[in-house]
Computed example of a mutant assay.
Amino acid sequence: MTYPGSTTTIHERAADWTGAEIRGAQLHAEAVSLASGASSGTLTSLPLTVAAFDELVPSWNAVTPGAGSVSVEVRAQMGAAWSRWYSFGTWSSAEGRSSLDGQKDSAGQVMTDTLRLSKKATAYQYRVTLRGEGTTVRLLAFNTSDRARQSAGLGTASDRRAWGKINDVPQRSQMIYPDGGEVWCSPTSVSMILAAHGVDVTVPQAAKSTYDRAYDGTGNWSFNAAYAGALGLRAYVTRLPSLAAAENFTGAGMPIAVSLGWKKGELPGAAMATSSGHLMVLIGFDKAGNPVLNDPAAPNNATVRRTYPRAAFEKLWLSHSGGLSYVVGG
């Protein structure tokens, strides 16, 4: 999936891992698992050449029974030199999942779920480590993007075929939970999308299952995609260049979670006056092309459904996160 300034590469079948170095693991038609008798194993990809980028966000879908876990590391090539291996922490469906703090050097830094480089890279390589009997990885995805081009698609014309189509997604407010719900926008959004696909988990369950110990919160983008993936769906993080591109998903019956921020007065009708970063679910577009959202910041479930002005919403989404979106499907 390639757009101007953004590329998402997805590996989910044996052919995608041709040439990878595999130790203690084995390939299946659509997954990687530990080899028989091994307690841990690794798959190291070949270098992947993509359009110039200075940010990378990984995603993975894995099954980690018991105390099993998965770690994903990435290194980037800038000019002729390779960076160190940067880790995105340890993921597990059990307790104890955590990103890894303190990874900053002259080449770049990891900010929980995002590798930000000090200059443009032209290639990257990834390494996934599997631990524990039964641990299996069935999808690895990497979004690479050029921060300088994150708003390049602003105002892209729509073909309007998705206008007037609203997907049926249950409405859930994060604000009705007194024990931390005010910061549960990401797992609340994921729980709504899961429910739309027939997987019904409560908001507190989703929050508990995405909690990142190092981040001390539930907003880790990679962990939220991993959570949906662990429940059997295909989930990954991407960046879209415009609402016109987002219409391809909602028009096909696939709501997506989107990340944006705004200052007072910038988003008319917003459930919160301001936000430094908020996830909500884009469920479709009204007949005039304005985005229709399930905004978990609403004070109660009945007021979650919101319609925001297209131009204002698109500008805030692209300028804040470069069009970052969770894509979750069957």
Rank of each mutant, 00 (worst) to 15 (best):
His197Gly: 11
Pro268Phe: 11
Gln205Gly: 10
Ala257Leu: 14
Thr307Cys: 10
Thr303Gln: 15
Asn290His: 14
Arg213Val: 14
Ser276Pro: 12
His278Trp: 08
Ala273Trp: 10
Gly269Arg: 12
Pro204Gly: 06
Pro255Lys: 11
Asp212Ser: 05
Pro268Val: 13
Ala302Asn: 04
Val203Met: 09
Gly251Ser: 10
Asn290Phe: 08
Arg305Asn: 13
Glu266Asn: 12
Ala225Ser: 15
Ser209Asp: 15
Ala302Cys: 00
Trp221Asn: 10
Tyr215Cys: 07
Leu267Ala: 09
Gln205Met: 13
Val258Gln: 02
Arg213Ile: 14
Gly232Ser: 06
Lys287Gln: 13
Ala273Thr: 15
Arg305His: 14
Asn294Lys: 05
Ala302His: 07
Gly219Glu: 05
Asn248Trp: 13
Asn220Pro: 08
Leu260Asp: 00
Gly253Tyr: 11
Lys263Met: 14
Ala270Tyr: 06
Ala228Leu: 08
Asn248Val: 12
Ala207Val: 06
Ser259Arg: 10
Gly277Ser: 12
Ser242Lys: 05
Pro255Asn: 10
Phe223Gly: 04
Arg239Met: 14
Gln205Arg: 13
Ser276Asn: 13
Tyr215Glu: 13
Ala225Arg: 00
Asp295Cys: 03
Val304Asp: 00
Ala226Phe: 14
Gly284Asn: 04
Lys208Asn: 15
Ala302Val: 00
Gly217Arg: 00
Trp221Gly: 06
His278Ser: 09
Gly261Leu: 06
Ala214Ser: 15
Pro299Leu: 13
Arg213Pro: 01
Ser275Glu: 12
Leu267Trp: 05
Gln205Asp: 15
Asp216Ala: 14
Ala225Pro: 01
Ala230Arg: 10
Gly251Asn: 10
Arg306Gly: 02
Val201Gly: 01
Glu266Gln: 15
Gly219Asp: 05
Ala244Tyr: 09
Ala214Phe: 02
Pro296Phe: 03
Asp286Thr: 04
Ala230Leu: 04
Val281Cys: 03
Ala206Thr: 07
Gly269Val: 09
Ala257Arg: 07
Asp212Ile: 02
Ala206Trp: 05
Gly269His: 10
Leu233Ile: 05
Asn220Phe: 08
Ser275Met: 09
Trp221Gln: 08
Glu266Pro: 08
Gly229Arg: 07
Ser242Met: 04
Pro255Thr: 03
Ala257Val: 06
Leu282Cys: 04
Ala252Trp: 10
Thr238Leu: 08
Ser209Lys: 15
Val304Phe: 01
Leu240Gly: 07
Asp286Pro: 02
Tyr227Ile: 06
Ala235Phe: 06
Arg239Cys: 11
Val281Ile: 04
Asp295Gln: 06
Ser242Asn: 12
Pro204Lys: 02
Ala244Gly: 08
Asn224Ile: 05
Pro204Cys: 03
Leu240Ala: 10
Thr218Asn: 13
Tyr236Gln: 07
Met272Asn: 11
Ala230Val: 05
Val203Leu: 02
Gly261Ile: 02
Lys208Ser: 14
Met272Asp: 12
Glu247His: 10
Asn294Ser: 12
Thr202Pro: 00
Tyr236Ser: 11
Ile283Lys: 00
Val201Ala: 02
Asn290Tyr: 09
Ala252Asp: 14
Asn301Asp: 15
Thr218Arg: 03
Asn300Phe: 06
Ala298Val: 02
Pro296Gly: 02
Leu233Asp: 06
Val201Asp: 02
Ser275Asp: 05
Lys264Pro: 00
